[in-house]
Amino acid sequence: MAEVKLIGTLPSPFLYRVIWALKIKGIPYEFIQEDLTNKSPLLLKYNPVHKKIPVLLHGGKPVCESMIIVEYIDEVWQQNSLLPHDPYERALARFWVKFAEDKGVSVWRMFRAKGEELEKTMKETEEMLQTVEEHGLGEKKFFGGDNIGIADIAFGSVIYWLEAIEEAVGVRVIFETHKFPRLHAWIKNLKQVPTIKENLPDWDWMVAFFRGRREAILASA
């Protein structure tokens, strides 16, 4: 089997999307820690366009952008499929991945915002969660049914990190159980999947990391 390497930075939610996919598939890989404050020649060589992590190297060939990498992994290693086989269900899964990509950015903006901008991003985040609560899950355990799939990976990296960012920012008012019972049941189910549970960043370390990064960002603004 061709060598697999993963370039990333902890605790990036985009990196964990790829980690989860590799773990679900049972694919061994070498992790290469990247310093985004001093980007390595390796990162610049293999992602010269965006110069971002994560980057998957498979047999020396780079694949960039987290959800593109996850689809690539699913196509190359076909065990434990992440995308449904039915064309309609596959399209639906891709729809929710796109929604997570488009709307999840409010969570990352919230991490860096204050004042009116923070209020705006909190409102956008709550609206995103409400849409998923009402239209994304229904009564299903996961987005695709009984098994974890690609949409769960996309949203898992949004919701789990939202919980940590809320605590770091000090605004624990968005993702409340009574507002989003389906999403709370879903994230609980997701965190109980062994490959996810065993590959989550340490909670206290992650909150402290985001708190420190936020303080540094706001101090330099």
Rank of each mutant, 00 (worst) to 15 (best):
N199K: 08
M128R: 04
W186P: 10
G145K: 03
D102N: 12
F175S: 12
E167R: 12
I148A: 01
E119Y: 01
G144W: 04
R112E: 11
K98D: 10
I196E: 04
V207H: 11
K98L: 01
V171M: 09
V207L: 05
A151W: 04
G144Y: 02
F143I: 04
R211D: 11
R182V: 01
D204R: 13
H184M: 03
T131W: 00
L200Q: 12
M122E: 13
R112I: 00
I165D: 03
W161K: 10
D102V: 05
E101Q: 15
W186A: 02
E166A: 07
E139F: 02
F142C: 01
K103F: 07
V171H: 08
R90Y: 06
V173W: 06
V158P: 15
K114W: 05
E126N: 04
K188Q: 12
F142H: 02
F155N: 13
W161V: 08
W203Q: 13
G104I: 15
E167T: 13
L190E: 03
G115L: 00
T131D: 03
R182L: 12
I153N: 07
L200S: 11
R94P: 02
G136P: 06
F155C: 08
V193E: 07
R109F: 15
K120P: 02
R182Q: 06
I153L: 10
H184W: 09
V97C: 10
A154H: 11
I153V: 14
G144P: 01
A93H: 09
A164G: 10
G138R: 02
M122R: 14
A93L: 04
A154P: 11
